[in-house]
Write a protein that binds this DNA or RNA. Structure first.
Length: 203
DNA sequence: ATCAAGATTACCT
DNA sequence: GGTAATCTTGATA
């Protein structure tokens, strides 16, 4: 009997490519975080940042202590804290020295939904509406998954947090728009999300 | 040592 | 739709 093929972890080569390519291909992939409970979700919305030409990127003004991981090789986790309340998580892309990354803006919950509800709302149960609000924004994704600065610089080809390969989302099912919540380089069409997915952050 | 800004969210009218 | 909350980082002195 032909057994169903298990999805494989994305390896270093996937991440060490041009940031816009990686951003688009990250759609539909599954992010997994292993603890006592395994949490996972399908990536449905991302934004690309490129310090070479993009004034909104944290790496635009050069290397600092905070953004140094973004200048490393692709496949590492860049987590930062903002607005005094929220963590946002990024997947570093490209070669050593490039300063590019993809912000994970929204995921569709798959495994460990009970724990995500607890992390986000501090209770065990949630209404359908609340479940749609679990992970539909970058700060919410980090809160639901319990991602903090402890995970800064983590190797995404390791065993704690990693990504599982999935079939590519077809171009006709990808919506391309301008990015959200930034004040510089606002016209770059570097936000990508899966068409008609209920878990994207609207706004 | 001090200060301003920020890749957001939740709650208000 | 508008805005307060909240604190880390990086820049300036």
């Amino acid at each position: 009997m032909p057994s169903k093929k298990k999805p494989q972890k994305l390896n270093r080569n996937f991440f060490v490519r041009e940031v816009l390519t990686v951003a688009k291909e990250l759609l539909g992939k599954i992010i997994v975080k292993k603890n006592d409970v395994t949490l996972s979700g399908k990536i449905v919305e991302v934004e690309a940042y490129n310090g070479d030409i993009d004034e909104a990127a944290h790496t635009f003004t050069g290397k600092t202590k905070r953004n140094s991981i973004m200048f490393g090789e692709g496949g590492f986790f860049y987590v930062y804290f903002t607005y005094g309340a929220h963590y946002c998580c990024n997947v570093v892309t490209g070669f050593e020295g490039q300063g590019t990354a993809v912000l994970i803006r929204a995921v569709e919950p798959i495994d460990g939904i009970e724990l995500m509800i607890e992390n986000r709302f501090g209770k065990k149960f949630a209404t359908e509406k609340e479940i749609l609000n679990l992970t539909n924004g970058p700060g919410k994704v980090c809160q639901a998954f319990g991602i903090t600065k402890k995970h800064y610089g983590l190797d995404l080809t390791g065993d704690e947090i990693f990504l599982l390969n999935q079939p590519k989302v077809k171009d006709e099912n990808i919506v391309v728009t301008k990015r959200i919540g930034i004040k510089k380089s606002v016209d770059l069409p570097w936000r990508f999300y899966i068409k008609n997915n209920p878990y994207i952050s609207r706004r």
